[in-house]
């Protein structure tokens, strides 16, 4: 059932690959950590974006226990594709589940680009000179946790 503990691959989109590379090169941020953050943003906002063209790849077994559980939560929370635990032993489902995570990561990153990076993302790469992306991302997180519903 814990299919993410196996050596399967996850992919970022080619379109946003440079963002992963930027944080990895500059701050040694691991792809799978960043991937899960973006997937959480996508899942929270119910935004999954299909994409074509694979970018960076990462192994699912890099996730620790809690991260895998969180990824399963994302999958199980998806009413359309993931909310059926019986399928967690079905090998055909594994790739669908990974795709679901990838699309949430893509959707989440799309939200971050729009709401956080703004013009510092020129469609190809992030502005190298800017130093406070992490602060902006954390501010975004704090803002979305404390949003006042109306």
């Amino acid at each position: 059932m814990d299919f993410l503990s196996e050596q399967a691959l996850l992919y970022t989109s080619k379109e946003y690959e440079q963002i992963y590379i930027h944080f990895n090169d500059k701050y040694k941020i691991k792809f799978h950590d960043l991937f899960l953050f973006f997937a959480s943003v996508g899942a929270k906002n119910g935004k999954s974006l299909p994409f074509e063209g694979r970018g960076r790849e990462m192994r699912t077994n890099y996730f620790n226990r809690d991260q895998r559980d969180l990824a399963y939560t994302i999958i199980l929370n998806d009413e359309m594709t993931g909310k059926n635990i019986d399928r967690f032993t079905d090998k055909d489902f594994f790739s669908q589940a990974r795709k679901l995570l990838e699309q949430y990561a893509q959707g989440g990153l799309n939200i971050i680009i729009e709401e956080v990076f703004g013009s510092r993302w020129n469609g190809i790469k992030l502005d190298d000179k800017y130093e406070d992306y992490e602060i902006d991302m954390l501010s975004y997180v704090y803002g979305s946790l404390n949003e006042v519903p109306f």
């Binding site: 950590d33 899960l36 809690d66 969180l70 939560t73």
Partner: peptide, 19 residues
């Protein structure tokens, strides 16, 4: 510390409602 929180804590915080 901010990166640690973003990567290790915020995904769990963001998905509170899904939990």
């Amino acid at each position: 510390e901010v990166y640690r929180i973003i990567l290790q804590k915020s995904p769990f915080l963001l998905l509170k409602s899904s939990f």
